[in-house]
């Protein structure tokens, strides 16, 4: 196709795509946990996948791909924050982000989040249809608080509080099920 493709070796390309397909979702969750904003996470993932592809020749097949990818993504998160026009006071600090990244590595090693995800789905089904609707609007339709407020005839502050309560309740429900509360 083009001379810019760094890995003309089709086996290598396939290996990359297989690894990426296998781990992309968990990588996206890792990034979202650190940047909080899903749109930012999507941007970081997009940039990160390109960097991973460019640097894939440095990756040793058979070693830990997600750990290698997370290192790249962590630097992409820092780079993304610097590029963003948002003020530094609107972010947690880079130093704290490093601590959080370390804690993420622990959680991944302990497979803590895999257990959480299973239980989280159960907790979601326990919500009332009305509350599930709020979560759907927020997460599936990516509606803003204002959008949800208009669509559900609630005030914005009521939606903000309700969403906070729903998130807390889900967190507590999962903690209770896992016996860590």
């Amino acid at each position: 196709m083009s001379p810019d493709v760094p890995h003309p070796d089709p086996d290598r390309t396939e290996a990359f795509l297989r690894l990426l397909a296998e781990h992309e979702r968990r990588l996206a969750l890792y990034v979202t946990g650190l940047v909080a904003c899903p749109q930012d996470a999507q941007d970081v993932m997009q940039e990160g996948k390109i960097i991973m592809w460019r640097q894939f020749h440095q990756f040793e097949l058979g070693t830990n791909f997600p750990a290698w990818a997370r290192k790249i993504l962590f630097y992409q998160i820092l780079a993304h924050r610097r590029r963003s026009k948002r003020d530094r006071s609107e972010h947690l600090s880079d130093r704290l982000l490093e601590l959080l990244s370390e804690e993420s590595e622990t959680a991944i090693r302990e497979q803590r989040w895999e257990r959480r995800e299973k239980v989280l789905q159960e907790c979601v089904t326990k919500l009332s249809p009305e509350h599930r609707e709020i979560l759907e609007l927020r997460y599936r339709d990516e509606a803003s608080i204002e959008g949800i407020s208009r669509r559900t005839e609630r005030t914005e502050s009521a939606v903000y509080r309700l969403l906070s309560r729903l998130r807390k309740n889900l967190y507590l429900c999962v903690a209770k099920e896992l016996g860590t509360a």
């Binding site: 969750l29 989040w113 959480r116 997460y139 998130r167 967190y171």
Partner: peptide, 16 residues
Amino acid sequence: LDFLHDHASLHWDHVR
């Protein structure tokens, strides 16, 4: 981070 991870998986898996 656990709380943020719940948020992340709700976003990426939608509300299933």
